[in-house]
Design a protein around this nucleic acid. Structure first.
Lengths: 195, 195, 195, 195
DNA sequence: TATGAATGAGCTTTCATTCAT
DNA sequence: AATGAATGAAAGCTCATTCAT
């Protein structure tokens, strides 16, 4: 008797997750190009063939990871938007971003690396672009928050805020052991979360 | 009739530069992994064999590019150190960095990409490390400047300054057409160059 | 409640036919090598596993198709042999063959393609051989017909007849839209069906 | 000192020929699909890499072979056209074709196999098409010859001639040991080369 | 009878590097 | 100093077939 569709679906999801987990682990530590499909399959303890049963190819793996990342970013943004005051909203963005990088600096590092990929890389560029597009969308929302906060030049303020935040995350993910994240975080919040 | 040794040396230097120029052009636009040795040789209009005569391999090319970059960074730092007052020194660092990224955003982007390379990439990681080491050294010098400037917590201030600067460069190199670099630059200088 | 054995048998036959129909459709249009087992199963709307339940493998599919083809050829030959006079017998062969190719040029094309397969193709060659063997057997029967017809050199005549017929079928199946099959058929019959 | 361009060209041509010869040998005996690039490289006694240095891929090999074939066909046709009378022209076509298949039945067989490839085979179909196109062009020329010969319905006559010729070649290449080519050839010439 | 997840051998192709000249 | 023919390891991917259910 064949497995039930539900059972199959369960197996599918479990295996896909297993594969994505392996891909993450390897991409994060060795990078996309230095990771081979064979590596991923071995790490996920499945055959290469099965990997191709679930993903169209190596590129599909990074596409899936980028999708997950975009969901995460969106999630933080939505949680921020749900806050009652603009000050709290901006504070949530800052804290969300900084706590995220604190927990998994190498993950941030990986996506930043993807983000800074040369624009003509034949495979990776399009995922870099997706991340940039999302960031741009979120930037608009964030500018609106600064407007409501009542600062003088909200667009410029928003840019400066994003730059500072990105810079901190970049620095922290580079020197996770020595960077004084708490202090810096406090200063950011002090500086940007009051009108 | 054989060339003179001096003539030979001139040709050698010219050819090496030609190769490095080609490598830069390609690495900056397509990235290290997507660029093949064949590409570099063709772009430099020389044979693959000759390329291997001057450079040990593909990795040696990126090593040379990183060396050039380190020289550039050092040069800015030395010029800054030569300024009479700490305020001017810090201002020079900020202006040097920002004008550099303004001129060649894709170059900064490339080195930032290298900088954020996963730590276990078997070939690229070590150049990533070199850039990090140099940045750390410069950070110490810069902290000294902030000390002389007389700010309360110079180490923290220096970190915050670096983060901001790096963040701005990252953002500008991502959105070179819309980022208001002049305004932001003015603000940075205002914020960090007075005690 | 279990199915009756008769019911089971009916389902078996229906499924096998479904699979063979799918295989035909795909082999005829894309060819044996370009058709995957997955294609066949999907087209037949059954699972891969079930396909393997009914057929030993991909090769078994082509074996079944060749068997069907041989039956068809045999059928025409037997119908011809049943005709009262040799002239009518030969005429029946010609008409049978030409009407067959008229109806399904791509089918003839496929078997001709199989027929002309290189002799060392590790999987397909043996089916090519079967078709050749059958044709040879039929050729003997046909030569006997020409003998009865009373032509001078019946063997040579039979060969010439077969060649002409095969040539016409080849040409028609290549240019089904422009080839004047009726005219040519009439000429063939005129030329070969009188002593 | 590097090799001279002329010397390089000589090496290139020799190696390319070596590869094409190996490809022919294998394609003719095992078929396109059953022949791997590895087979070809091993037979040509070169590395796989070198094969790709000279040919873009497996498909490029068959493209080259088809080009050679088209040249051969064209050559026969031009030689025929150079004959003074239409009867001699047609005779030359018949003899050219039949002598060619006599010499290398497996070559004809291979190209016929290619010619009869299913129309949707993703790689091979286009070369099949090229052969068909060329045959159609030659058919027009041949029809003109029959017109000059003064037969009643030259187009039909030309079709019938081509069909017969193709049929003979098909039969001979199938049964090269028993097919009475000389006799049949004589009959063809008798039948088609007089007004 | 029926499913589709899972395997693994083998394929085409790329590319850093070497080597004869 | 200079060329480009030649190599070979390793990559991404396909697919006939098997197997647990």
């Amino acid at each position: 008797m064949p497995r039930t569709p539900a059972e199959n679906e369960r197996i599918r999801q479990a295996t896909k997750e297993q594969i994505l987990k392996a891909a993450m682990e390897l991409f994060f530590s060795k990078g996309y190009h230095a990771t081979s499909i064979d590596d991923v399959a071995k790490t996920a303890k499945i055959s290469k063939g099965l990997l191709y049963h679930y993903f169209k190819g190596k590129e599909d793996l990074i596409a899936a990871l980028v999708d997950l990342r975009l969901q995460d970013l969106l999630f933080v943004m939505e949680a921020a938007a749900a806050k009652p005051t603009p000050a709290e909203q901006i504070r949530h963005i800052a804290e969300g971003a900084l706590e995220d990088v604190r927990r998994k600096p190498e993950v941030f590092r990986f996506y930043l690396n993807l983000f800074t990929q040369p624009r003509l890389d034949p495979v990776v560029a399009k995922y870099s672009q997706r991340l940039m597009d999302e960031q741009e969308k979120q930037f608009e929302v964030q500018t609106e928050m600064f407007t409501k906060l009542g600062v003088a030049n909200p667009r410029k303020r928003s840019i400066y805020f994003s730059s500072t935040l990105q810079g901190i995350m970049l620095m922290f993910s580079t020197y996770p052991n020595t960077f004084p994240l708490d202090e810096v975080k406090a200063q950011v919040i002090e500086e940007f979360c009051s009108p």
